[in-house]
């Protein structure tokens, strides 16, 4: 009797449970097929893998039991551990290191159509303000840290790439009348990074493609074809994000969440939390509905101000000292 054939439906069930419908490329299935185990070993291996799938953690221990019991070889146990971890991890949240590489490519792509504004004093100043906000944010540590850059456009615009690369236009800077206004704009962008909004714009189909790329266990020998597939998924992810940042914009709820967190960050640092509504008021005055840049990708400023008015934005103690306005004026002189 061919016991492997008899087990096939069960194994397919196992792959369904762990991969949500992935087909023959299931790493678990592939690993089991390659293992060439006896029926007893198959049964125990299936039991182990199902248990590990249920637990998601502790896979190595389960495989160790199998190994200790003498039913699987150390190599087979290792293979199962690796495969189990791959399946679990492929669907987990992106790591900070990966977010970093996505962010770099998103930033580079944005700058291919937006010229960098060469003004070291203004750039340094924006980075100083931005860094104080990032440090007080919910996610002060990212793989490569937070960095801020100004681009030439006269349109009011700002983008936050994954990992903490933040870009804002000269037009946006001109809208800010003081350091607190600038802090409010930057806090909103830092909040988008904290909340992972850009990464969230990557389409689900990219993850499916990723799962297919990793579907084989021959990962130790990643060849040209797999690299090409991975790069295609990467390019797709970059285009999902830039498309959202430049054209479609985030959902209204995401903008509201970013505004809410921005107010919290401003309070933590000591900038005026009411500055965000103030800058939005300037925007409502300056930008036209249906216009380019920020106007196209963000909810109408009035709607955001209405939401902000529901929050407690009190908290500014007295008038900012003249030194703050003086350094703002000095840094923004050429902008």
């Amino acid at each position: 009797m061919n016991r492997s054939r008899k087990l096939a439906p069960l194994l397919n069930t196992a792959s369904y449970v762990s991969l949500g419908g992935a087909s023959d490329t299931s790493p678990i299935l592939t690993a089991l097929r390659r293992s060439a185990l006896s029926y007893t070993q198959w049964t125990l291996a299936l039991c182990i893998v199902l248990t590990a799938a249920l637990l998601q953690t502790g896979c190595s221990t389960v495989a160790q039991i199998g190994q200790a019991a003498g039913v699987v070889t150390p190599q087979q146990a290792e293979s199962m551990v690796k495969t189990g971890q791959s399946v679990g991890k492929a669907f987990e949240k992106i790591t900070p290191e990966q977010e970093y590489y996505v962010g770099r490519a998103v930033g580079a792509t944005l700058l291919s159509t937006h010229k960098v504004y060469a003004n070291d004093a203004a750039t340094r100043y924006v980075n100083l303000v931005g860094q104080t906000l990032a440090m007080a944010s919910d996610k002060p540590e990212t793989f490569g840290g937070y960095h801020f850059l100004i681009f030439e456009d006269d349109d009011v615009n700002a983008f936050a790439a994954p990992g903490g690369l933040i870009f804002l236009s000269r037009g946006m800077l001109r809208l800010c009348k003081n350091e607190d206004d600038l802090a409010a704009v930057l806090a909103h962008e830092v909040a988008h990074v904290n909340l992972g909004h850009a990464i969230g714009a990557i389409k689900g189909s990219r993850w499916t493609a990723a799962a297919t790329v990793v579907g084989t266990e021959g990962l130790k020998n990643v060849g040209g074809e797999q690299l090409a597939q991975a790069t295609t998924a990467f390019e797709g992810s970059i285009s999902d994000i830039t498309g959202t940042l430049v054209n479609s914009g985030y959902a209204r709820g995401q903008e509201r969440d970013a505004d809410t967190l921005a107010v919290t960050i401003l309070k933590r640092v000591g900038y005026n939390p009411a500055a965000l509504a103030r800058v939005l008021g300037n925007m409502a005055h300056d930008i036209k509905p249906g216009g380019a840049g920020f106007a196209k990708t963000h909810p109408p400023p009035d709607a955001r101000i209405a939401d902000l008015n529901k929050l407690n934005t009190a908290g500014q103690a007295g008038t900012p000292p003249p030194a703050r306005q003086q350094r703002f004026n000095a840094a923004m002189a050429g902008v």
Binding site: Q85, A90, A210
Partner: peptide
Amino acid sequence: LALAGKGF
């Protein structure tokens, strides 16, 4: 490497 596809 399992993450290469999405990860980068």
